[in-house]
Amino acid sequence: MIQFDNVSKRYPGSDEILKNISFNIDAGEFVFITGHSGAGKSTLLKLIAATELPTRGTVLVANQNVSQLKAWAIPFLRRRFGLIFQDHKLLFDRNCFENVILPLRINGIAEQEAAKRVRAALDKVGLLNKEKTMPITLSGGEQQRLAIARAVVSRPTILLADEPTGNLDADYATEIMNIFNAFHQVGVTVIMSTHDALGLSANKKRVLHLNQGVLTDTTQSQFGSNLNTETSL
């Protein structure tokens, strides 16, 4: 599904953020990307979502070389992903419903069908009763759940989450993890970056560990939703 082959990334005027990274993620896996802040976790996710392009090496998503995609094709690649950002990137000028419907509008889904799917997504994250609420009035955990609803409403096959539990207390974090587990169980590939060891110990999944831009700890699993053959940190 996602293949990195000797990928390096350097921003103009900085050192290499990622150095010769190679790995493979199959469809249906649940993968953690760990490491200290500044280790390059966000950059790795951005490379997968084609919001950044690698300086060297190749990134393959569904057998497409991201670097060689034409500009018009990139939006269609991105629609395969559900993106959950570190800072939510919710739109505070509109209510929850309008926030979640945005990807469906982009996909050109007819309004009636879209409304149904928005309510289904809000229901999955437990925010169905907040449909008309403005996101600014939601708690941190609720905002994160709203961001998840927006990411899953277009039924992507891959969920990319950048520190979704980073700013939440333990109860909220567990809640969020449960939601991700539920999506994983129905076959969605989940890739989540975290610096939070707590989340890891509770979920023994495959872990890609980044240390100063180097992928130092690749624990390969016999993938499958409930087989926990990998080692934790």
């Binding site: 018009w72 939006p75 739109l91 945005l102 990807p103 982009i106 927006r150 990411a151």
Partner: peptide
């Protein structure tokens, strides 16, 4: 601007 940025990130085309 925020809406445009988010839209680009989640797969909006230029024409959209």
């Amino acid at each position: 601007k925020d809406e445009i940025e988010v839209s680009y990130l989640i797969g909006a085309t230029n024409s959209f």
